[in-house]
Simulated assay, not measured.
Amino acid sequence: MANQTEVLRLLMANAPEYCSGDRLADELNISRTAIWKMVQGLQTAGYSIESRHGRGYRYVENNQLSVAGIQNGLDITPAVQLIVLPSVDSTNAYLKRMATRTPLTEPVVVVADSQTAGYGRSGRTFYSPGETGIYLSIGLPVTTDQPLDAGLLTTSTAVVVAQTLRQLFDVPVELKWVNDVLVNHHKVVGIMSEGITNLETGQISTVVVGIGINLTTAAFPSPLQSKAGAVLAHPTKVTRNQVIRQLLRTFFERYPSYRSGDFMPLYRQLSMVINQRVSLKSGARTYDGVVLDIAQTGALVVQLTDGRVQEFSSGEITKVNLLTGQYHG
């Protein structure tokens, strides 16, 4: 029996042209009255569908997130299971619960309009209001023939997000090691990878890559106002479905080869910390020095204040004193 999703897919496939009620009814083998009721249901759910006498119905892209909207024109390999939720505590937490119950055998992407308990590194809260942001997590099965390189996967994802934003919007994008994406010197994207261990083997069986994008978020809680920002300070005709579609397309194009580090030249180009003085927290210690480079492995190469050169494969830059520019964070 035909359902609203099938009607929506047909309208999307014909957009921006109108599709007659007769044609929809014939293709789905249901009555025109049933088509009319389903279109009404889609409109009530927030989809923008125009109706014109003698011409039928037309789908118009809007900011409503949907599986059909994201999949429309998305042609990627391998096949991806896509879940879209109106609200969730955290897309990462949702996927971790899902993968803990049943190990993943294919990539799964969870998208939410809002998060009630979004989080980042060190348990920090990730502000996740509805309608203005993109909150998604990608769950990937890990196998012995495709082992996980967490550092390169995180840096690769940062490049994927930066490329997506540069392709869709005219904004200056920079990367702060390891995975903060900045626009106009404000953090607009958070990325966090988490592994799930198989209790029987003791090996990581699934990795979850969480991505939060402040697309048009205009107001932040006071503790975040000085550092957080949005990709855009104005509304955009580019929908969230389009952004997610482009991001997933780029991510899965790069994923098979991310372990080679072939994206690192672009990561270095986008980096805002090379040749800058930084404070870096790694483990229980804080180090000060000048960033010389980012190694092919994604490690940060720092000349410390005592002259020694040291590589850091993990840690967090807590302060950047730009020798040029206006960033203060």
Rank of each mutant, 00 (worst) to 15 (best):
L199F: 06
R277Q: 14
A34E: 05
I138H: 10
T201D: 15
T297H: 12
Y255G: 03
V301H: 01
D262P: 00
R308F: 06
E200H: 14
T105G: 13
Q81I: 04
R32A: 02
Y119P: 07
F251E: 05
G123I: 05
E316Q: 13
A93C: 08
I30A: 10
Q326G: 12
P78F: 12
S279C: 05
Q203K: 10
T305N: 13
E27W: 00
T297A: 14
A2G: 12
G298S: 09
G195M: 07
L42E: 03
G130H: 09
L232M: 06
M192I: 15
S137H: 09
G315M: 13
I134D: 00
A219Y: 15
T132K: 04
S222Q: 15
N241I: 04
G21C: 03
A233V: 05
H53P: 03
Q167Y: 06
K319D: 13
L24R: 04
Q167L: 14
S260N: 15
L95H: 04
V290P: 05
M38D: 11
S114C: 15
P147H: 10
L182V: 13
G46M: 01
F252T: 10
A150I: 02
F169T: 03
G195D: 02
K37A: 12
E50N: 06
I196P: 00
G261Q: 01
V67P: 02
I70A: 11
D180N: 04
L8I: 03
I317M: 09
I317F: 08
R240Q: 08
Y287E: 05
V290C: 07
I70P: 12
L148S: 07
T143D: 11
S313W: 08
G46S: 12
T105L: 11
G298Y: 00
A158G: 11
S226K: 08
A93N: 14
V88H: 01
G315D: 10
E61A: 09
K227H: 06
S222D: 13
G73R: 07
V7A: 03
G120Y: 09
R240F: 03
Y94G: 00
V238G: 10
T33S: 15
Q163P: 05
P129Q: 06
R32C: 01
L153K: 03
G123N: 13
S51R: 13
D262T: 04
N184I: 04
